[in-house]
Computed example of a mutant assay.
Amino acid sequence: MTFEDDLAAEGEPEAEFHVGIAARQPMKRVAAGALFHDPQGRIVMVEPIYKPTWEIPGGMCEKGEAPRDACRREVAEEIGLATNVGRLLVVDWQPGHGVWGEIVVFVFDGGTLSEQHIDAVELQPDELRGLHRVALTDIRGRVRPSMYRRLSEADRAKRNGETLYLQFGRRA
């Protein structure tokens, strides 16, 4: 069965009983990233040109795109690696902050990148200025506190074979 087959099996979408109600429902942003390690166990981070903090490879889901598919696409776009993203490690809800609305972030296991894979990385030049390999303890100050909590929990989930639900980087 394909996604299209599954969608067709759902049947016709239901009609709105109160016209316009669907348009008034809240919309959440969704993002997905991959937690990669290098052979020494350091986390692979990217340095965006459009903000002061580092990120794991990944990005925003496009309309109609599943988080795992978005993660694969964003990793390929950002660092030029076609990878089979592994299991889900963390789902993290973040509240709105400033001009940015709330978001749900999925973190998948990217596995360990060999030195050959790291040497083959091609950064998306209009988005990224650098690739870094850093120990989790050395990431503080380079990411927002919520991202540090999320990465800490994702790293722990990877080691322990868990999948965690977080709220703003904390276990809920």
Rank of each mutant, 00 (worst) to 15 (best):
Thr112Val: 15
Val104Gly: 03
Glu102His: 09
Glu127Ala: 13
Gly130Ser: 11
Val91Ile: 14
Val134Lys: 11
Gly101Cys: 02
Arg129Ser: 13
Ala120Trp: 01
Gly130Asn: 09
Pro95Gly: 13
Phe108Lys: 07
Leu128Asp: 05
Ala120Phe: 00
Ala120His: 08
His117Gln: 15
Trp100Glu: 12
Asp126Gln: 11
Gln94Arg: 11
Gly111Lys: 09
Glu127Cys: 06
Ile118Glu: 00
Val121Ser: 00
Gly130Trp: 08
His97Thr: 03
Gly110Leu: 09
Arg129Ala: 12
Leu123Asn: 03
Val105Pro: 01
Asp119Leu: 01
Asp126Cys: 02
Trp93Arg: 13
His117Leu: 05
Arg129Asp: 09
Leu113Asp: 03
Gln124Leu: 12
Gly96His: 08
Gly130Val: 12
Val121Asn: 01
Ser114Cys: 03
His132Glu: 11
Arg129Pro: 00
Ile118Thr: 01
Ala120Gln: 06
Ala120Lys: 04
Gln116Arg: 11
Leu89Trp: 10
Phe106Tyr: 15
Leu123Arg: 10
Val134Leu: 14
Val121Glu: 00
Glu102Ile: 00
Val99Arg: 14
Trp93Glu: 13
Glu122Met: 04
Asp119Ala: 15
Val134Trp: 09
Leu128His: 06
Phe108Ile: 08
Gly111Glu: 08
Val91Gln: 14
Asp119Arg: 07
Val121Pro: 02
Ile118Cys: 01
Glu115Ser: 06
Gly101Ala: 14
Glu127Thr: 10
Phe108Tyr: 15
Leu128Cys: 04
Glu127His: 12
Val91Phe: 01
Thr112Cys: 13
Gly98Val: 03
Gln116Tyr: 02
Pro125Asp: 10
Ala120Ser: 15
Leu123Ile: 10
Glu122Phe: 01
Glu102Val: 01
His117Phe: 01
Gly110Met: 07
Val105Phe: 06
Gly130Leu: 08
Gly110Trp: 05
Arg133Glu: 11
Val105Cys: 15
Ile103Pro: 00
Glu115Val: 08
Gln124Ser: 12
Gly101Tyr: 05
Asp109Ile: 10
Gly96Thr: 04
Leu89Phe: 09
Arg133His: 06
Gln116Ser: 12
Ile118Leu: 15
Asp109Lys: 09
Asp92Leu: 08
Gln116Leu: 06
Glu102Gly: 15
Leu131Ser: 02
Ile118Lys: 00
Val91Ala: 05
Arg129Thr: 10
Gly111Phe: 05
His97Met: 06
Arg133Asp: 00
Val90Thr: 15
Trp93Phe: 15
Leu128Ile: 14
Ile118Trp: 02
Asp109Glu: 13
Phe106Glu: 04
Ile103Trp: 00
Leu89Gly: 07
Phe108Ala: 06
Asp119Trp: 00
Val121Gly: 00
Leu131Gln: 04
Gly101Trp: 04
Glu127Ser: 14
Glu127Tyr: 12
Pro125Met: 02
Glu102Cys: 09
Arg129Glu: 12
Val91Arg: 15
Trp93Thr: 08
Leu113Glu: 02
Leu131Cys: 07
Leu89Arg: 08
Val121Met: 08
Arg129Met: 12
His97Phe: 11
Asp92Trp: 07
Leu113Pro: 02
Leu131Arg: 03
Leu131Ile: 12
Leu113Thr: 02
Val91Lys: 15
Asp119Cys: 01
Val90Asn: 03
Leu128Trp: 07
Asp109Tyr: 09
Glu127Leu: 13
Asp126Asn: 11
Ile103Met: 09
Val105Trp: 07
Phe106Lys: 05
Gln124Lys: 14
Ser114Glu: 02
Glu115Met: 03
Gln124Val: 02
Gln124Glu: 14
Phe106Val: 04
Ile103Glu: 13
Leu131Asn: 03
Arg129Cys: 13
